[in-house]
Amino acid sequence: MAEKRITIQATRFDPEKDSAPRLQSYDIPFPDDSMVVLDALNYIKAHVDGTLSYRWSCRMGICGSCGMMVNGTPKLTCNAFLRDYWPRPVIVQPLNNFPIIRDLVIDMDDFMHKLKSVQPWIIRKQEIPLGGGEHRQTTAQIDEFKQFSQCINCMLCYAACPVYGLNNDFLGPAAIALARRYNLDSRDEGFTKRLPVIADSEGIWECSFVGECSVVCPKGVDPAKAIQQTKLDTTLRFTLPFGNRD
């Protein structure tokens, strides 16, 4: 029997040489049904073309490095199985809505700034000393914010977000979900500090209920819900007579 093979078409772009991204085709062996798109890229890099650039590390869906467009859908390539695409070719492109640094590597500085802007840390009016032990927190209180704490910053939601695609000033799904994660944490008192950043940010009102971000999230986070809840918080704050919520 002939060896099973698969075609990978990967975006190539080196700003030192290329004026625009292009697709390069690689025909590689596909000997094992357990292979994922990332395995294919690693095969190409090790044995066919050492110049292909992309990010990856944990290959277990938790480090968030290997997000790419796979046949037009944002995916973690470490758990996108080739068997789900074969015998069709697999088109691997950098995540939508981001500038390309090189090949499949996107520039995510914008997110790093936005992440910091929502103050993703516990804010308290008064710190309790370490000697005072832990804050008590029930499982029910953890469940309030738990899903929003599962974000791995993989950027798939930004690649899927039509609002971010039109307007990069939009704070975006993951940053809002992470702001929500802290706002909902029983230990946190930073709601009023974060609210202006989120309320004044561009684009939050353009977000529809489409929820592409939640659909593509590989970790079951529902950023669309975080955004809708945040809109509600914002409205309450400006309509209630004593809207000084903490």
């Binding site: 370490l130 832990e134 738990k146």
Partner: peptide
Amino acid sequence: IQMEHWGCPWSRDPDGK
């Protein structure tokens, strides 16, 4: 405990510890 104060979502016992 320091990690807890920084927000680590440690799993909890029924008493919240």
